[in-house]
């Protein structure tokens, strides 16, 4: 990831500042510190099975954040507010299609990815062909998806996860790790390969850092951007299926909390909202950091209000390290 971040000549004056400006390193240091703090506050917090449990929750967020990451990298105020709606829609669709039966898993995955792809395609077309700002387009799409959920849930009892899916998410699958973690690792490798080793990856960074220059250089800007939105919704759909497996049954608006936390995970991972730089490794760390913070707060007996206050202040403090814009003077 470091090669994508041009070093600021000013930074070379002090090597400590350079290290502190590497978001991936900051995130890892914070993760270790938080684990130590958690273990001190409540012994057993940093035990292996507890960390595994946190990683499962982080994987669900991390997969949503992968798509969010792509859209944000593509620049031009790229952001996807509809991911939460897609997660909910996908969890409901998957539950209804598989209906607790292992034989229907493949069909459910296909339906969900197709539905997600379609939503992303519409988002992408709205943003590129019609030129609607991503925030407005995906905000409107979120409203449509919330309405669609009401229609789909009407009269149909909410579906059940197939046993194999539930086991995949929470039971050890390979080398004592649950399947969802292998899936997350696969998503991580896929993203690293996509961003670092394919021409699509270079095109994404190109349109993210300077769209006009990329266009002049022959990058099909609109097609790439449509693809980013489609991928974002498909990752959200994939996460929705896993969340169904995690919860066992789909309940209303299960995806709501993923909208803004996926954006926060991306930012904490060192991808600024202005796009064009950053990568997914940081986002994975950001997702785990976010889940870890929330988990430590639940071990404190300070009540829901205190938890939210501490969480908000901590987030603000963390954001001090990430992607602050330059001062106008100087």
């Amino acid at each position: 990831m470091t090669i994508m971040q041009p070093t600021n000549p000013q930074d070379s004056r002090s090597s400590i500042i350079v290290y502190f400006k590497n978001p991936l390193l900051v995130a890892f240091i914070l993760i270790v510190l938080l684990l130590i703090a958690g273990e001190t506050l409540s012994p057993g917090f940093a035990s292996m099975e507890q960390i595994l449990r946190l990683l499962i929750v982080a994987a669900l967020l991390g997969i949503v954040a992968a798509g969010q990451n792509l859209v944000i990298l593509g620049g031009r105020e790229g952001i996807d507010l509809s991911v939460g709606g897609v997660v909910s829609l996908s969890a409901v669709l998957a539950g209804n299609v598989m209906d607790g039966n292992n034989a229907n898993i493949i069909a459910a995955i296909l339906v969900c990815l197709a539905a997600g792809g379609l939503v992303g395609l519409i988002n992408g077309v709205g943003v590129t062909i019609f030129g609607i700002p991503p925030l407005v387009m995906t905000l409107g799409m979120l409203g449509v998806l919330q309405g669609l959920l009401v229609v789909i849930r009407q009269g149909i009892p909410s579906g059940l996860a197939a046993p194999a899916l539930a086991n995949f998410v929470s039971k050890p699958f390979l080398l004592n790790l649950p399947g969802i973690l292998w899936l997350w690792i696969a998503v991580g490798l896929l993203m690293a390969f996509l961003l670092m080793r394919t021409s699509l990856g270079y095109k994404i960074y190109a349109i993210g850092s300077n769209e006009n220059a990329a266009y002049m250089a022959g990058v099909p800007v609109k097609r790439v951007r449509v693809m980013l939105f489609a991928l974002s919704s498909m990752f959200a759909a994939l996460a929705g299926i896993c969340i169904l497996g995690y919860a066992g049954t789909s309940f209303a608006n299960v995806g709501d909390s993923y909208m803004l936390s996926s954006i926060i995970a991306v930012v904490l991972g060192g991808t600024p909202l202005s796009g064009g730089k950053g990568g997914y490794t940081g986002t994975m760390a950001g997702a785990f950091l976010l889940i870890l913070m929330q988990s430590i707060l639940t071990t404190l007996s300070i009540g829901e209000s205190g938890r939210q206050v501490v969480f908000g202040i901590t987030l603000l403090f963390l954001l001090l390290f990430y992607g602050r814009s330059k001062a106008l003077r100087g």
């Binding site: 952001i79 803004l260 954006i263 926060i264 930012v267 600024p272 909202l273 009540g303 829901e304 209000s305 205190g306 938890r307 939210q308 206050v309 501490v310 969480f311 908000g312 202040i313 987030l315 603000l316 954001l319 001090l320 992607g323 602050r324 814009s325 330059k326 001062a327």
Partner: peptide, 21 residues
């Protein structure tokens, strides 16, 4: 100089916490 979307989301968590208190 934080990014407005994420920073005001963070303050919204803080303020909702105070409202709950």
């Amino acid at each position: 100089r934080m990014q407005a979307i994420v920073a005001t989301f963070a303050t919204s968590i803080l303020l909702s916490g105070i409202a709950l208190w």
